[in-house]
């Protein structure tokens, strides 16, 4: 039972943060692609801006990993 809840929690952590960073990257990505079509040398800057919101999902992933392998292992 408890393990199941942990699994659900971990899934939510990754899922929701994934949605959130996807939503945040939507406009940034479109803009970055737009700028790169005109001037390919903007790739570096475009990439930086594009992956900025990626941190949200990474935090979600870390939380999920902690939940499963640390909290889950002690249950």
């Amino acid at each position: 039972m408890e393990l199941g809840l942990i699994a659900i929690g971990a899934g939510l952590a990754v899922g929701i943060t994934g949605l959130a960073s996807g939503w945040a990257e939507k406009d940034v990505g479109a803009a970055a692609v737009g700028a790169m079509t005109e001037d390919p040398s903007l790739f570096g800057k475009g990439m930086i801006l594009m992956v900025l919101p990626e941190t949200i999902v990474i935090f979600g992933l870390v939380v999920a990993i902690l939940l499963i392998f640390v909290t889950g292992a002690s249950v």
Partner: peptide
């Protein structure tokens, strides 16, 4: 994906503006 023309909707501001700004930088 970016070039879709649709009636209604607000429009693809981020993409279009980024392209245009890059073009303007070359004036």
């Amino acid at each position: 994906m970016f070039g879709r023309k649709g009636k209604g909707g607000k429009g693809n501001y981020p993409y279009a503006v980024a392209r245009v700004k890059a073009k303007k930088a070359q004036l």
